[in-house]
Every structure is written in structure tokens, then in C-alpha cells.
């Protein structure tokens, strides 16, 4: 076999020269076109979770990092991060650790499981999206305030923390980072941000009067004020036929939970809610 060595030399040579030329051009370009970026932006971005959830109100973690460096946002603006992260960002920015932000968790405040507790108006067979179902008589449940259960919140959750259980969305507290995307997406506005360490929740959002409520859903707040009477710390108030807990006063004694005739005030000792078939809270150790 006759191999033309010169053509190999030419080929290798050309490629080497081209590579060298491009390398030099790129090297020069990287110097010539160098954009001065504040190195703190990169550092802060590395500290942030990097999920780009948008919970802070900026377009992503990079945008927030830029905003923090430019002074447009506070070091603890990331709702997802822990206090340590906020402290570390403050440290990068040369500020005093000013975390102090309370960690929150999302909670879907509805117990009206479809056909179990809540009465249904009609069977919905359209696009699986709550906003779409809202257009047909404000959703499938008689209760105007109840969870539609078509999972608009499930879709927006970037952390897979929400699932639908019998027509009601349930947040997995272990996974929730309180970015607030579900709260903003919910057309019924029944997702609330509650302090992460709180364990007693009024799982209803209905402002309907007691008698009307009983017609629509067996698991709805009827505004009977039993909880306000039993509460020693005065943390529960009933406004517009709906009980509300002031978490700054709540001592988590659990008396309201026992007293509630509709069993919609629920306790969650394990910091994660599990329910059995009768809608009772069960004490289960969360899965690790």
C-alpha cells in the first residue's frame, strides 16, 4: 500500500495551524471583549438554590444575585433559602447577618374531598386545569371556596411538593420551599403561606354562613366560634364565618383541634400532614 505521507503532513499541519489561529483569536477576543462582572454575583448565585423558581419576584437566581449586588434586593430575599444561606449572602455582600426571615411553608386550606366531604355540582371532563374549570360555574364543587383539584398548583411546583388527593391538593411539607408559585397560580386563592414550624391549621377557606356551608360541604368551617371560646391564648378569631389562627399567639395546645365540630382544625405534630380515610389527622413519622 502506498501512503502519501505528505498529504498526512498537510492535513495535520492545516488543522494545527487553523486550531492555533482560532485559539489565538479566541484568546485575544476574551481579553478584548472581557465584560467586567462583579464577582460577588457569581458567589451569591452559587449560594442560592439555583432552581430558578422565581419565588423572589426576579427572573431567576442569577437575576436575584444581580439585584442583591446592585442593592435592589435584600440578602434574605430568597424565600426558599434557609437563614444560613441568607447569612452567607450577607457575608459576601459585607453586611451584617440580617436574616431573621421566618421560614414558611405552603398549605392548601381545604378539606373538602370530592364526593367524600364536598358536594359536586357536575362532572368535569375538560382541560385538566383549575383556571379552565373556574370558567364553568366557578369549579366543580358547590363550595365557592373549595379546592378544584385539577392540579394547576401541581404543575407550577418546581419541587414536586404538591399532589392531589381525592380532589384536594396536599402540600408535602418536606419538599415545600415556600416559593409561592402555587399560591399565585391557584385561581381559588386557597393556598396560604404559614410559618414552617406551626402545626395547627384551619383547613377551610369558606366565608359562607354555617347553614349554607353545611349544605355544600361536610368539612367546612361554619363559624361556630367553638374554637375561639376554647382557645386560652386568644389566637383564634372568627371573621366572616371563618376561623383564623394568629400564629404569633398560638401555643399549639391543640384544644381547638379537639373542640372543632367539623374537624377542620387539624394538628400536625410531625410537621407533615397525613390523613386517614375519615379525614382524621394521623400521627405518622414522616418518611425520611
Amino acid at each position: 500500500m502506498n501512503i502519501d505521507f505528505m498529504s498526512i503532513v498537510y492535513a495535520v499541519g492545516t488543522l494545527a495551524i487553523l486550531g492555533l489561529i482560532f485559539g489565538i483569536i479566541l484568546g485575544i477576543a476574551s481579553k478584548a471583549f472581557a465584560v467586567e462582572t462583579d464577582e460577588r454575583i457569581g458567589e451569591i448565585q452559587d449560594t442560592l438554590p439555583g432552581a430558578n423558581c422565581g419565588g423572589c419576584g426576579f427572573a431567576g437566581c442569577n437575576a436575584l444575585a444581580t439585584a442583591i449586588v446592585e442593592g435592589k434586593a435584600k440578602p434574605n430575599s430568597c424565600p426558599v433559602s434557609s437563614n444560613e444561606t441568607a447569612d452567607r449572602i450577607a457575608e459576601i455582600m459585607g453586611m451584617a447577618p440580617a436574616s431573621g426571615a421566618v421560614r414558611y411553608g405552603a398549605r392548601v386550606v381545604c378539606s373538602g374531598k370530592s364526593n367524600i366531604a364536598a358536594r359536586m355540582k357536575y362532572e368535569y371532563d375538560g382541560v385538566t386545569d383549575c383556571v379552565s374549570a373556574m370558567r364553568f360555574g366557578n369549579g366543580t364543587k358547590y363550595c365557592e371556596y373549595g379546592c378544584i383539584g385539577l392540579g394547576t398548583c401541581v404543575k407550577v411546583c418546581k419541587f414536586g411538593a404538591i399532589k392531589i388527593d381525592d380532589g384536594v391538593a396536599v402540600v408535602d411539607k418536606e419538599k415545600c420551599v415556600a416559593c409561592g408559585m402555587c399560591r399565585d397560580a391557584c385561581p381559588k386563592k386557597i393556598i396560604e403561606m404559614v410559618p414552617y414550624d406551626s402545626s395547627i391549621f384551619v383547613m377551610c377557606h369558606s366565608h359562607d354562613k354555617g347553614a349554607a356551608m353545611k349544605e355544600k360541604c361536610t368539612a367546612g368551617c361554619i363559624g361556630c366560634r367553638m374554637c375561639t371560646k376554647v382557645c386560652e391564648s386568644g389566637a383564634i378569631t372568627v371573621t366572616d364565618n371563618l376561623a383564623k389562627i394568629d400564629y404569633s399567639k398560638c401555643t399549639e395546645c391543640g384544644k381547638c383541634v379537639e373542640k372543632c365540630p367539623k374537624k377542620i382544625i387539624k394538628i400536625d405534630k410531625n410537621k407533615a400532614i397525613f390523613f386517614d380515610k375519615e379525614n382524621e389527622p394521623v400521627s405518622v413519622t414522616p418518611k425520611q
Binding site: 482560532f22 471583549f33 465584560v35
Partner: peptide, 21 residues
């Protein structure tokens, strides 16, 4: 081979140039 080299460096170059200009 040459085109891969050219395209890769071209894209890098464009990226740098765009970032600046």
C-alpha cells in the same frame, strides 16, 4: 473535522462579542 473546529470557535467568538457589544 475543520468545520467542527470552525463552528465551535465561531460560536465561542460570537458569544464573547455579543456579550461585550
Amino acid at each position: 473535522v475543520v468545520f467542527i473546529l470552525v463552528i465551535a470557535s465561531l460560536v465561542q467568538f460570537i458569544e464573547m462579542a455579543l456579550q461585550k457589544m
